Simulated assay, not measured.
Amino acid sequence: MNTLHSIAQLRAALARARQENKRIGLVPTMGNLHDGHIALVAKALQRTDYVVVSIFVNPLQFGANEDLDSYPRTLAEDQRKLLDAGAHLIFAPNVSEIYPEGMDGHTLISVPVVSEGLCGASRPGHFNGVSTVVGKLLNIVQPDLAVFGEKDFQQLAVIRKMAHDLCLPVQIMGAPIVRAEDGLALSSRNGYLGEEQRRIAPRLYQTLQQIQQQLESGRRDFPAIIEEARLALIEAGFQPDYLDLREAETLQPVTSASQDIVILAAAFLGATRLIDNLRVSLA
Rank of each mutant, 00 (worst) to 15 (best):
N2H: 11
T3F: 08
T3R: 14
L4T: 03
S6R: 12
I7F: 10
A8P: 08
R11F: 05
R11L: 05
A13V: 08
R16G: 09
N21K: 13
G25D: 09
L26W: 02
G31K: 02
D35A: 14
I38L: 15
L40R: 03
Q46R: 03
Q46E: 10
T48Y: 06
Y50N: 11
I55P: 10
F56V: 05
A64S: 14
N65H: 13
D67L: 10
D69P: 14
D69F: 09
D69R: 14
D69N: 14
S70G: 11
Y71L: 05
R73Y: 06
R73N: 13
T74M: 14
A76Y: 05
E77S: 14
E77H: 13
D78E: 09
K81M: 14
K81L: 15
K81S: 13
A85V: 11
H88A: 15
H88L: 13
I90T: 15
I90Q: 12
N94S: 15
E97C: 14
E97P: 15
E101R: 15
D104L: 13
I109A: 07
S110V: 03
S110E: 06
P112Y: 02
E116G: 07
E116C: 09
C119G: 06
G120Y: 09
G120A: 10
G125Q: 03
F127I: 00
N128L: 02
V130M: 01
S131K: 01
G135L: 05
K136Q: 13
K136F: 07
L138Q: 08
N139S: 15
V141W: 01
Q142I: 04
L145M: 07
L145F: 04
F148A: 01
E150I: 00
D152E: 00
F153A: 02
R160K: 03
A163H: 00
H164C: 02
C167L: 11
P169F: 06
I172H: 11
M173Q: 12
M173H: 07
G174I: 01
P176V: 01
P176Q: 03
P176T: 01
I177F: 01
R179E: 04
A180M: 04
L186P: 02
S187V: 01
R189S: 03
R189T: 02
N190D: 04
G191C: 02
G191H: 01
L193R: 00
G194L: 01
E196A: 04
Q197G: 03
P202E: 00
Q209P: 07
Q209I: 00
I211C: 06
Q212V: 00
Q213A: 12
Q213L: 08
R220I: 05
R220S: 12
D221F: 05
F222N: 10
I225K: 12
I226S: 12
R230L: 08
A232H: 12
L233R: 05
I234C: 14
E235R: 11
G237L: 06
F238G: 08
Y242N: 09
D244Y: 06
D244S: 13
L245M: 07
A248P: 10
E249G: 08
T250H: 11
Q252I: 00
P253V: 02
T255N: 09
S256Q: 12
A257H: 12
S258H: 10
D260N: 11
D260C: 07
V262G: 04
I263T: 08
I263C: 13
A267R: 04
R273A: 07
L274N: 11
I275P: 15
R279F: 07
R279H: 10
V280M: 08
S281A: 09
A283Q: 07
A283W: 05
A283N: 09
